[in-house]
Nucleic acid binder design. Structure first.
Lengths: 207, 207
DNA sequence: GTAGAAGCGATACGAGTATATGGTATCGGG
DNA sequence: CCCGATACCATATACTCGTATCGCTTCTAC
C-alpha cells in the first residue's frame, strides 16, 4: 500500500475553508482557487478529494448541519441532566441556531447561503430537506414530550407548532444578520413563541 | 432633441426579465446576456439603462419589494373598507408574503435571492434594510392599532411582537418553498402566531 | 432638410471559472 | 531496496462573465 492520508480530515479541512469563505464573502466568492488558498493547499488537491463542485457543496453543507445537530444534542443532554423544564431545554437548543456570536454567525451564513442555492440545486435541496426534516422531527418530539409532562395542552398539533417555532427561529436569524446581533432581544422574542405553546409552565412564559 | 424612449418602462421590462430568471434558475444564472435574451433585447441596451450590474440588482430588488408593498397596501385598504378586525387584516396582508401561488412564489424567490446576496453586498443590504424597516414599521403600527381597539393587551411590546410575526412569516415561507406549498397549512400556522398577540379577539384565534 | 443626440446592437477584451491533464514527491509492502 | 500506488501540485483548456467601445439607426429641433 502506498502513502496514506486521512481522507476525512482532509475533506473536513477543505470544507472548513469553504465555509469560512462562504460566511465571510458570500457564495459568489467561493471558487476552487480561493478555497485552495484558504485551506493552504492546491486546487488539484481539492479535485483529488471531491469529484466536482457539487460534491464539495454537499459535503460542506452536510458538515455544517451535522455539527449544528451535535451542538443541539449536547444542549439537550445537558438540559435533561439538569432536569430543566422541557420548554427551557427547547429554547436553549433553538438559540443555538441564532447568529448571536461569531461561531454561530458563521454557521448561520453557511446554512443560509447553501439553503438559498438549494432552491435551484437538486443535490443541495436533498440535504436541506433532510436537515429540515430532522430538526422538525426533533422539535416535534420535544413538544410531544411537553404534552406528556403537562407543559403543553394536549390538544395542540405538535407538528404544526414545531413548524411555527422553527420558522420563527429562522426568521429571527435573518433579521439578526440584517440589523445586527444586538438590535433586539432575539432570545426573548423566541421565548414568547415557545411560551405560547408551552402554556403549562408560566415560569418560562413570564420570563 | 433626439429620439425618445420610455426609460421607466424599459427599465421595468429589463428588471422583470431579471426577476423571472432569478426566480426560475437562481442568482448564479443571472447574467447580462441571459437577461437580455429574456427581455428580448441586446446586452448593450441593458448597459444603456443600467450603469453596471449593481444598479440592475438594486433596481430589480426595489421593484420587487415596492410591488409587494403595493399589494399589501391594497389588502389593507380593502380590509379596512370591509371593517374587518385588525388581526384579520394583518393576517391577510402577511399571507401576501407567502409563496402560495405562482406569482407570490416568484416574488418570494426574488426577495430571497437578493436578500441572500445582500449579506455581502452593501448596496443591496441598504435596500434590504429599508424594506425590512418599512414592513416592520407597518406591522408595528397595525399592532398598535390593535392595542387601541382592545384586540391586543396594552402591555405588549408592539415592536418586538411585530418582529416575531414577521420572522415567522419569513420562516414559514422558507419552509414552504422547500417542502411544497401544500405541505402544511401555512395560513393557519401564521394565524396562530397572530392570534397569540391579538388575544382580545377570540373569533380570530379560534378559527 | 439636415445636424446631432439618443436609442440600440454587435463585438472585442481581460479576468475568472471549473475541470482536464501530466507530472513529481512520498510513502508502504514485498 | 525499490516498485508502484497514491498524494499532491502546476499548468492548460475551454468556457462565461461584466464591461468597454464602435457603429448604425431613428427621431426631434431648428
Amino acid at each position: 500500500m502506498p502513502r496514506v492520508a486521512d481522507h476525512d480530515q482532509r475533506r473536513a479541512q477543505i470544507a472548513r475553508a469553504f465555509q469560512r469563505l462562504l460566511a465571510a464573502d458570500g457564495f459568489a466568492a467561493v471558487s476552487f482557487s480561493r478555497v485552495a488558498t484558504g485551506a493552504g493547499c492546491s486546487v488539484g488537491l481539492i479535485q483529488h478529494y471531491f469529484p466536482d463542485k457539487d460534491a464539495l457543496l454537499r459535503f460542506a453543507y452536510d458538515d455544517a448541519v451535522s455539527r449544528l445537530g451535535e451542538r443541539v444534542r449536547v444542549r439537550v443532554r445537558n438540559g435533561e441532566a439538569a432536569r430543566l423544564p422541557v420548554a427551557e431545554v427547547l429554547l436553549d437548543s433553538l438559540v443555538e441556531l441564532l447568529p448571536l456570536d461569531a461561531e454561530r454567525d458563521v454557521e448561520y451564513r453557511v446554512r443560509q447561503g447553501l439553503q438559498a442555492q438549494a432552491l435551484h440545486h437538486p443535490g443541495l435541496a436533498e440535504v436541506a430537506r433532510r436537515a429540515g426534516r430532522d430538526l422538525l422531527g426533533y422539535v416535534t418530539a420535544v413538544i410531544g414530550d411537553g404534552v406528556g409532562r403537562g407543559e403543553v395542552d394536549a390538544g395542540v398539533d405538535t407538528g404544526l407548532a414545531a413548524r411555527v417555532i422553527l420558522a420563527t427561529v429562522q426568521g429571527l436569524a435573518d433579521q439578526l444578520v440584517l440589523s445586527g446581533a444586538d438590535a433586539f432581544p432575539a432570545r426573548d422574542a423566541l421565548g414568547q413563541v415557545v411560551a405560547a405553546v408551552f402554556t403549562g409552565n408560566r415560569a418560562v412564559r413570564d420570563r
